[in-house]
């Protein structure tokens, strides 16, 4: 089964690279959905329905993975036989850990009231800048075969995205959603 292919870039017939064209990805995704979605098989046999559900699930997973900056990085590393699920001490430099602890403390120090929304916003911009830097390094390192460094960039990205999502949660709390 083609869609069971583990290389998500191949599924969408796009170049295997971190920087991708999101419009092309979305177009190819819709094109494939139109072929395999269970709605195309609503009146079909159970076997085909099941097949369609499975194919579409893989397709959705592939799309989500490639669309996500973190997911895409992890996938590229996996394709180069780097297992990101196991973190070893050497992947994380003391400098990186120290910076993350500082950022965490900075977030903790922001008072939890509505006046802090600006502060949160300011901090978010700062983190987003860091994410962009980190992504550039990831591209450079993965392209030049420095996979251990790329792996470390990936973990840094992961820390930063986790921080951003925690900031979202705090903001939602403050806004009362």
């Amino acid at each position: 089964m083609l869609l069971q292919n583990k290389n998500f870039f191949q599924i969408f017939s796009i170049p295997e690279a971190y920087d991708l064209d999101p419009v092309l990805l979305a177009e190819n995704y819709r094109e494939l959905q139109a072929q395999v979605h269970p709605d195309r098989f609503a009146n079909a046999s159970e076997a085909e329905k099941l097949q369609a559900v499975k194919s579409t699930s893989v397709l959705n997973d592939a799309y989500e993975t490639l669309r996500s900056p973190q997911g895409r990085a992890a996938h590229l590393l996996q394709l180069r036989d780097v297992d990101v699920s196991k973190v070893s001490q050497s992947d994380l430099s003391p400098a990186l850990l120290f910076e993350q602890i500082q950022l965490r403390e900075e977030l903790e120090d922001i008072p939890r009231d509505e006046k802090s929304l600006n502060k949160l916003d300011h901090m978010r911009k700062q983190i987003e800048e860091k994410v962009r830097d980190c992504q550039k390094l990831f591209v450079k390192n993965s392209n030049t075969g420095q996979l251990l460094r790329a792996k470390s960039n990936y973990y840094e990205m992961q820390y930063l995205f986790k921080l951003l999502s925690d900031m979202d949660a705090i903001e939602e709390d403050l806004l009362g959603y």
């Binding site: 089964m1 083609l2 869609l3 190819n28 094109e31 494939l32 072929q35 046999s45 076997a47 085909e48």
Partner: peptide
């Protein structure tokens, strides 16, 4: 239905390859 399961999967693959060849 059960006997045609593998055939359905093969045909879907061919279909996908064709779809992508046309567009992307």
């Amino acid at each position: 239905n059960g006997a045609s399961e593998g055939f359905a999967a093969k045909r879907m693959d061919v279909q996908i390859v064709d779809a992508l060849r046309g567009e992307s």
